[in-house]
Simulated scan of single mutants.
Amino acid sequence: MPISLQKGQKVDLTKGNPSLSKILVGLGWDVNQYDGGFDFDLDASAFLVGADGKAQPQDFIFYSNLKHTSGAVEHMGDNLTGEGEGDDEQIKVDLSLIPSNIEKVAFTVTIYDADKRKQNFGQVNNAYIRIVDETTDTELIRYDLGEDFSIETAVVVGEIYKHNGEWKFNAIGSGFQGGLAALCANYGIETC
């Protein structure tokens, strides 16, 4: 049975499970009734962030840059419609390969062309992030975001971070207006 988190909760990943190395981060969502004439294309991304809270352009993993040069983080591909059951997008993380200068990996979701399509996270429900031990296929953590969003077009869903040599997970659920550009600016990347 996975640990179910609330916004702001933090939980150890490796302290009680020292053999944990490979995790699968699954992100999923459903779209409320929407009749705008466009598909609802949500995109998961990961920012590998240093001690200064910033990421370098090569440390931004998304649909156009699927794998980090270290091999530590790999996006499994873009789902253009979000239809179907289960995870809509997945990101694999090998904790043992994360470069020593990286202190956290933030997992985000944005709405592609949100302004043009007049879409926002108020039109999305059942959004979640889950952490799975890839070796045993056991779901360890689940965080359901709830319905806290209205006009936001980007969300930092959660992050894994290093604390005293151990990896932890933080359920964030923080929304942004301005889509992917706002997230990139938040993590110090000038253009995305």
Results as ranks from 00 to 15, higher is better:
47 F>V: 08
36 G>W: 09
44 A>Y: 13
45 S>P: 01
46 A>E: 12
62 F>N: 02
60 F>W: 12
36 G>C: 08
28 G>K: 04
62 F>P: 00
57 P>F: 02
30 D>S: 15
52 D>C: 03
33 Q>F: 10
52 D>F: 02
61 I>A: 05
64 S>L: 11
57 P>S: 12
64 S>I: 10
60 F>L: 14
60 F>K: 10
45 S>W: 05
62 F>C: 01
24 L>G: 10
27 L>K: 10
59 D>G: 06
48 L>K: 04
41 D>E: 10
29 W>F: 14
29 W>A: 02
24 L>H: 08
59 D>K: 02
22 K>G: 08
35 D>W: 09
54 K>M: 06
22 K>D: 15
32 N>W: 02
27 L>A: 11
21 S>M: 11
56 Q>K: 15
23 I>W: 11
45 S>C: 11
64 S>E: 07
25 V>S: 07
44 A>R: 07
38 F>K: 04
53 G>I: 14
65 N>K: 14
46 A>L: 08
23 I>M: 12
22 K>N: 15
41 D>R: 03
56 Q>I: 01
62 F>D: 05
64 S>D: 13
65 N>H: 13
63 Y>R: 11
56 Q>R: 15
46 A>S: 15
35 D>R: 02
40 F>M: 14
32 N>F: 03
39 D>E: 15
58 Q>K: 15
48 L>A: 12
46 A>K: 01
26 G>L: 10
51 A>P: 10
60 F>Q: 05
57 P>G: 13
34 Y>P: 00
37 G>R: 12
41 D>G: 09
52 D>L: 10
50 G>Y: 08
49 V>K: 03
65 N>W: 03
36 G>A: 08
49 V>Q: 03
60 F>A: 14
29 W>I: 01
44 A>E: 13
40 F>K: 02
29 W>C: 06
26 G>Q: 11
30 D>R: 12
24 L>C: 04
36 G>L: 05
54 K>Y: 01
38 F>W: 14
28 G>I: 06
60 F>H: 02
22 K>S: 14
51 A>V: 08
46 A>C: 14
26 G>K: 13
44 A>L: 11
48 L>R: 09
31 V>G: 08
44 A>C: 11
30 D>K: 14
43 D>L: 09
37 G>K: 06
64 S>T: 15
62 F>S: 08
39 D>H: 03
54 K>C: 05
63 Y>M: 07
46 A>M: 10
28 G>W: 10
48 L>V: 04
63 Y>C: 06
26 G>C: 13
26 G>E: 13
36 G>H: 11
44 A>V: 15
54 K>D: 04
31 V>Y: 05
32 N>V: 06
39 D>M: 00
55 A>R: 10
49 V>A: 04
58 Q>R: 12
29 W>R: 07
50 G>M: 10
40 F>Y: 12
35 D>E: 13
51 A>Y: 00
44 A>W: 07
27 L>I: 15
